[in-house]
Lab assay of single mutants.
Amino acid sequence: IGSLMYASIFGNVSAIIQRLYSGTARYHTQMLRVREFIRFHQIPNPLRQRLEEYFQHAWSYTNGIDMNAVLKGFPECLQADICLHLNRSLLQHCKPFRGATKGCLRALAMKFKTTHAPPGDTLVHAGDLLTALYFISRGSIEILRGDVVVAILGKNDIFGEPLNLYARPGKSNGDVRALTYCDLHKIHRDDLLEVLDMYPEFSDHFWSSLEITFNLRDTNMIPGSPGSTELEGGFSRQRKRKLSFRRRTDKDTEQPGEVSALGPGRAGAGPSSRGRPGGPWGESPSSGPSSPESSEDEGPGRSSSPLRLVPFSSPRPPGEPPGGEPLMEDCEKSSDTCNPLSGAFSGVSNIFSFWGDSRGRQYQELPRCPAPTPSLLNIPLSSPGRRPRGDVESRLDALQRQLNRLETRLSADMATVLQLLQRQMTLVPPAYSAVTTPGPGPTSTSPLLPVSPLPTLTLDSLSQVSQFMACEELPPGAPELPQEGPTRRLSLPGQLGALTSQPLHRHGSDPG
């Protein structure tokens, strides 16, 4: 009997000691992992102490058991019943959930998450997105703005933001810190809205009876308010094209079509300037034949640059190039080494500058006005007194259609001029006259002087055409309008007829 009692007592005591040691061994194993994590990542002392304290409290609170892992091991129907039991206190005593059906309560219970916070733990920081609604079931918390405590909340209090009033989550206007050990039930806004969409009859009752104890939403960050730039940057990543407008005076608003859609830094370009900076079609017209890549860069430059609305530039004389043409100036200075066709295309550029300027006046029909002061630039669209967005969009579309028509007509005119030049060069190729044979009589004449090349004649003739079109064909006081194609086609051969009437002889060394 004594040996039996000794064996039973010894066996029970050893089993008890073994169970104690097993729990202690698990605790030390998990604690060792936490300390190894702290050492590996070199976490500083204040945060390291918070980690160790939280682990110790969580171990004593749950005995080292992962409740979520245990809950996920059950089937979904059983999980709903378990969640309904775990959140029964909240669902029974909170006013917004009263009167809900059994199915609605089960769906809500599945969406709730339980959070346990030790003292000093910050649940929400200032500036964080308010993605959830919090219900306090135990403990107390404090809300701070800077170093000032603005509120202390306790059991059955609710904090967050009214989700039904805002389409997008706002930002917190303060820090939420736990004063004691707290148990909180939180539900994400997407989950709550999903359940309320499934039960629309409960939705009206819920929003009407929901009383948020403390609204954390920062009202200064609401979209459309003066301080909402940061919020707009976070939620409006896919922005449309940006529009900046110059201020319109009362006198300017009476004149229709007073602005032109141009790229940034293009205030001095012609009315047909689009795409790359520098001139019509993204580059100076005089350098068009020598740089074919300008047409390839036109599309990307047009689509990537934001639109700006600026006044037209001052008018340019008909014979003056659009500006920024070092290529043609070098050719004029060193005409001995340049291609003979460069002079002809220089005359073509003069005609283009004249036609572009006159067509700009035809479509816009307003006098040039000086540029406004820099303080009046970049007025935002949302400022008071601005035109409605639809009106601005319609004006932009009208300007775009005008620019497209202008570009089409300029292309047709350019093709006409090039065809005339090619026809003239085919009839009378460039050549130098040879020395004529002296006559049989004693009164022999001296050799004839060489005839100037055709490109120079073409430049003079085209300059005469531009001056003739600019000065004589337009009646005084009438708006400057571009001439039609047949009129220009008839004027060019008439001007060139006198020049080509002389018999030109080919030089023996000319390969053409």
Rank of each mutant, 00 (worst) to 15 (best):
D147R: 07
Q364V: 07
I158R: 02
N215L: 02
D147G: 08
R239I: 13
E201R: 04
S466W: 04
N164H: 11
E332S: 08
P370H: 09
S286M: 03
S273V: 11
P475G: 10
L399P: 02
H185V: 13
S433G: 11
P280M: 07
L184Q: 01
G139H: 01
E161G: 03
E473Y: 07
R138N: 13
G494M: 05
G263D: 13
E161K: 02
E325M: 12
T426M: 11
Q255F: 12
L262R: 09
I158E: 03
V392T: 15
P440A: 13
N350G: 11
S225T: 12
A261S: 08
T253V: 10
E365G: 10
D336L: 06
E254S: 11
D128V: 01
R395Q: 11
L216H: 01
P384M: 15
Q483M: 04
Y199C: 01
F345T: 13
G477V: 13
L504D: 15
D397A: 10
G265E: 09
T445L: 07
R239H: 11
G160K: 01
W207R: 06
R247Q: 10
R405L: 04
V176S: 01
F206M: 03
G512W: 01
L210V: 09
N350C: 03
E298P: 05
P306H: 09
T458V: 05
P453K: 08
E407D: 10
L184W: 01
I141A: 03
A267E: 11
R361Q: 09
G146V: 03
L153W: 01
L454N: 15
K171N: 09
E232N: 13
P479E: 10
S236F: 12
P372T: 09
A151L: 02
P455W: 06
K155R: 12
M425F: 07
P256H: 09
S140L: 06
A132H: 13
L193S: 06
D175C: 09
P372Y: 08
D175T: 09
Q495Y: 09
S294N: 13
V348K: 12
E393A: 06
S287H: 10
T373Y: 08
R368K: 12
P450H: 13
Q419G: 10
L457I: 10
D128Q: 06
A478K: 12
A178T: 12
V148H: 08
M414C: 04
I141N: 01
G154W: 03
G477N: 12
K186G: 07
L457Q: 09
Q364R: 10
D397N: 05
G257T: 09
I212S: 02
D191S: 03
R506W: 04
P271W: 07
S433P: 06
T249F: 09
S208L: 07
S461I: 09
K242D: 13
P223I: 10
V195R: 02
R145S: 12
G146C: 04
W207Q: 11
R401S: 15
F206E: 01
R506M: 15
P442T: 07
F135Q: 01
E407C: 04
G224N: 10
T219P: 12
I158T: 09
G356Q: 07
D250C: 11
E325S: 14
R266F: 13
G127I: 01
A412T: 04
Q502Y: 10
L153M: 04
R389M: 05
M198E: 09
G154I: 05
G265K: 10
D197A: 10
R302A: 12
D336R: 08
L462N: 05
P311S: 15
Y363P: 05
S411N: 15
G257H: 13
P380T: 04
D357P: 12
Y166Q: 07
P476M: 08
G233W: 10
L192A: 01
G299T: 14
N164C: 09
L481M: 05
N215K: 02
I158W: 11
F352R: 07
Q362W: 03
L153R: 01
P493T: 11
G299Q: 04
H188N: 12
L403P: 01
H505D: 10
L309C: 12
P271N: 12
F245M: 12
R506D: 08
S203A: 12
T437V: 07
S272D: 04
S236C: 06
G512M: 13
F468H: 14
V348T: 13
A431H: 13
F202L: 06
R359N: 15
A269Y: 10
P511L: 09
L399I: 05
A431S: 10
P388G: 14
L341W: 15
T437C: 13
L399S: 03
G146I: 01
Y199K: 02
P340D: 11
G508I: 11
E296Q: 13
L210W: 04
D128A: 03
P315V: 08
E161C: 01
L399G: 03
E298Y: 15
D197P: 02
S501N: 08
Q364C: 05
V195D: 01
T249A: 10
E211A: 09
S346V: 10
G508T: 09
P511E: 10
G439P: 15
R359W: 04
D190C: 14
E407T: 08
L153S: 02
L216Y: 01
G477E: 09
I187M: 03
T249Y: 10
S349W: 04
A371M: 06
F135A: 02
G477A: 11
S208M: 15
L144W: 12
S260T: 13
L499M: 09
L427V: 09
A371W: 09
S273A: 10
Q238P: 12
S349E: 10
